[in-house]
């Protein structure tokens, strides 16, 4: 048998080797995003041969680049608001009042939501938006996103409300709180980690979705960043790496900030949520 201290040292070496490889694996693809936007002669490799901020100043002058970030923000914010608000109410109702077959219905909706986000449902979605005069409307995009995200949001939040002890609500009720007061004062604050999780999840989903705004929005002034990213081509028809990389960085910053905020505020973990 080996000397235990030797084994401990070996285990430690193994551990740190593994963690370094892990670090490399996850960091490697991101290096390009960190270097290329500042490169005067951008290529697909990772290097800063000549540092510049020129790429960003080009973007600032682009008529669609910055507004598209604002558009993305509107879509993501609107969707997150609707999704979290409606999902929280529905999840609470489903978790507290007995409705026959409620779990089956939820699972069915969850499965259906995978169809609607798929490409095959594009035509029905387009026609539906057309009939409702929601083409080229942000509200239309938000509603379509909300419809697709709600089942999973309800599912996640219901897990939070299901795990909330009943005695809090009962206690408030005995003190005379109305059902809506109970929801406002007790339930919503107590499932806040869940609300944060769902908000982040909804924002991130909308932020990166290309297909839905692409088919529902006509006016380039209303394009979100995900669509604008595909419009940067040089005159020769080649992808314009300078603009793409710089815009990718700008486009990524909000989600990084969101991550930093949430991880600072809530520690970015699942708080007893999604369990079972």
């Amino acid at each position: 048998m080996k000397d235990p201290t030797v084994r401990a040292v070996l285990a430690k070496i193994g551990r740190y080797t593994f963690l370094s490889v892990l670090l490399g694996f996850f960091a490697l693809p991101m290096l390009w995003l960190a270097s290329t936007p500042f490169n005067a002669h951008p290529t697909l490799d990772v290097s800063i041969s000549s540092f510049t901020l020129h790429n960003f100043s080009v973007l600032l002058k682009d008529p669609y680049a910055l507004p598209s970030l604002w558009n993305s923000l509107l879509l993501a914010g609107g969707t997150a608001l609707l999704t979290v608000g409606f999902a929280a109410a529905a999840a609470y109702a489903l978790s507290r009042v007995r409705i026959p077959g409620r779990n089956g219905i939820l699972y069915a909706l969850l499965l259906l939501s995978s169809i609607v986000t798929g490409t095959a449902a594009m035509v029905p979605l387009f026609e539906l938006a057309f009939k409702l005069h929601l083409i080229d409307s942000r509200v239309g995009v938000i509603l379509v996103f909300t419809g697709g995200l709600l089942p999973a949001a309800i599912f996640i939040l219901k897990d939070f409300t299901d795990n909330m002890p009943r005695s809090y609500e009962e206690s408030a009720r005995v003190f005379g709180a109305s059902p809506f007061q109970i929801m406002r004062h007790i339930v919503l604050p107590m499932i806040r980690p869940g609300l944060a999780t769902v908000t982040v999840w909804a924002v991130v989903n909308v932020w990166s979705n290309f297909l839905i705004p692409y088919i529902l929005i006509r006016n380039p002034d209303k394009y979100p960043a995900s669509v604008v990213l595909y419009t940067f081509y040089t005159e020769g028809g080649q992808p314009d790496l300078a603009l793409i990389s710089a815009f990718s960085l700008l486009y990524s910053i909000p989600v990084v900030l969101l991550y930093l905020f949430v991880s600072h505020r809530y520690g970015f973990r699942f708080h007893g949520g999604i369990k079972r």
């Binding site: 609707l82 608000g85 409606f86 999902a87 109410a89 529905a90 609470y92 109702a93 489903l94 507290r96 009042v97 007995r98 409705i99 909706l109 259906l112 939501s113 609607v116 979605l125 539906l128 509603l143 379509v144 909300t146 419809g147 697709g148 709600l150 089942p151 309800i154 009943r166 005695s167 609500e169 009962e170 408030a172 009720r173 059902p179 109970i182 929801m183 339930v187």
Partner: peptide, 25 residues
């Protein structure tokens, strides 16, 4: 139903979510 929500109110507060799901999903 610890908050005394009742079926009617439960239906009312889940209605927006269900309507959007019905229409857009």
């Amino acid at each position: 139903d610890p908050a005394g929500l009742g079926r009617a109110r439960a239906a009312a507060i889940s209605a927006p979510a269900l309507l959007i799901i019905a229409a857009f999903l």
